[in-house]
Design a protein around this nucleic acid. Structure first.
Lengths: 282, 282
DNA sequence: GCGCATTTGGAACAAATTTTCCACCGGATT
DNA sequence: AATCCGGTGGAAAATTTGTTCCAAATGCGC
């Protein structure tokens, strides 16, 4: 007989697994207790190792590991290991899963549920942004923007909101901008006035708007510094850009959040303004 | 022959692996490129999954994964995977260490610190939104928007980003809109075309843009339903609006976040679209 | 439009890993 | 002191997993 029939349920997350192990530590036989200690001391190793490796590290036989898992109520060692792996994977509590659960709820109801969903997606995007943001990239982009006389702002369709917001913020910050808004279909002409002492900030996400890509490429070819905010290193924008920032937004339903992008945008604008002020003082 | 003999060396850490993949993305055949994108988008999954699982997720054959690894210079998929695992292992130094790193970079200044600050403000705004949002108000506004033939979108200066985003989203959702963008200073004239079977969604925050207030009042006086997103019950917009939603954004430095407002906006648009669809079915 | 080279899918194969099984050990009980 | 019983080690079995191979498909240049 393995384990105690009375034990309510097998733990599904690391927290409860840990509690269970601590609780039963006393009553476990010698070798199993040895495994218990090892597991709690080296959870990272447990997540990655094979049974044979871990058995070696813990100083027991492979079969003991399996027995240990079964004593805890798992069907085998693999099931137990999955919990250790999930712990590593879910650095911040699994957002994709929560989002899909929210999506289910939204079917049933009302605009509040929708709001919840979009808010959740926005928070997730922001969390991911803070986790992944690279200081080097941000500084590089801000530097280029700060050193330019005037900044062209290029973003069509969904991200036009971002560039128009930037146009407002930059105006407030005393940075000269030109919002390339494709008014009258004159995007290419609007971009023509950017010179090599100016800069272009291009924003585009999948599916990339062709005009944005083309104009960015054209401008870059003319020797104007181009920087970008985009969603993947494979984005066609990265070919034209001297520096770029990667922003991955989470979707909810058919719509993607814009919060992380807006946040990056405003941070860049303020950062560039500060660099300018610092530069002027010299 | 797999890969290019000339390629100097196989990457030993995630950073250089990432660079290599980005670099060679262009010249890779279709399926291998597909794997490349998947790998960079879901590095966590790659770290733990088996070849078969990952092949399923990436939408390719198991053999393609192996080929991908070999093309990059690894002997097989397992070698490649080891790098993804190492990344995950090193990523979790400690929880406390990560927190202090966040603190440290806030102190250190630079654009990362700014980004953190703005992200923090955005998250706070979103949290507050979810606390305070009233289902009744949301539903009422959505209802009015759903019942209108066409929606006028009014928002100047800082919140123009919100209305222009709404114009995009509504177009996608099949809702007819008119973006009142004050082009050529013709705001009042643009608004004149809204009739009593249309609706106006006005957005304005302190300090309220006078034109927005005036146009909203004028339109309301003509019997056009007006709804609003604003920041206080005392906002002048609430006088003209049949229903409104209160959104309080947090500032960081001199700039206020827009995340909560954008989130409310998109939720309203989708909600209105759903109500319309439900209505049409009757 | 034809032939070539490259890429792709899928199945077969080999290696590795997990799990099961059983004999043996050691301590407690009668 | 004999016996019983849970615990343990190790090896064998079963399963899973990574890799290789080859035929079909695809794209490309002539």
């Amino acid at each position: 007989m393995v384990g105690n029939i009375a034990e309510a349920k097998v733990p599904q997350d690391f927290e409860s697994l840990r509690n269970l192990i601590v609780l039963r530590r006393e009553e476990l036989p010698r070798r199993l207790a040895q495994v218990a200690e090892f597991a709690l001391e080296q959870p990272d190793k447990v997540a990655f190792g094979t049974v044979a490796e871990l058995a070696g590290l813990a100083g027991v036989q492979p079969s003991t590991l399996v027995r240990f898992a079964q004593t805890l109520g798992f069907s085998g060692f693999s099931d137990l290991q999955e919990i250790f792996r999930a712990r590593l994977r879910e650095r911040w509590p699994d957002y994709s899963e929560r989002l899909s659960r929210l999506e289910a709820r939204a079917q049933s109801g009302g605009s509040l549920a929708l709001l919840d969903g979009f808010a959740e997606a926005a928070v997730a995007s922001l969390a991911r942004l803070r986790e992944d943001a690279s200081a080097a990239d941000l500084d590089k982009v801000a530097r280029i923007l700060a050193d330019s006389r005037r900044i062209g702002l290029l973003g069509q369709r969904r991200v036009f909101a971002v560039t128009s917001y930037l146009a407002y913020a930059c105006a407030k910050l005393g940075i000269e901008t030109q919002l390339l808004d494709n008014r009258g279909g004159m995007l290419a002409e609007e971009a023509r006035y950017l010179g090599s002492d100016d800069a272009l900030l291009a924003v585009s996400f999948t599916p990339y708007t062709p005009e944005t890509i083309e104009v960015a490429a054209e401008v870059a070819a003319r020797g104007v510094p181009v920087v970008a905010i985009t969603d993947s290193p494979f984005s066609p924008l990265t070919r034209s850009a001297q520096a770029w920032i990667e922003v991955v937004e989470c979707d909810y339903g058919a719509f993607r959040s814009l919060s992380a992008t807006m946040t990056v945008a405003i941070a860049l604008a303020v950062s560039a303004a500060e660099l300018r002020r610092a530069g002027k003082r010299d």
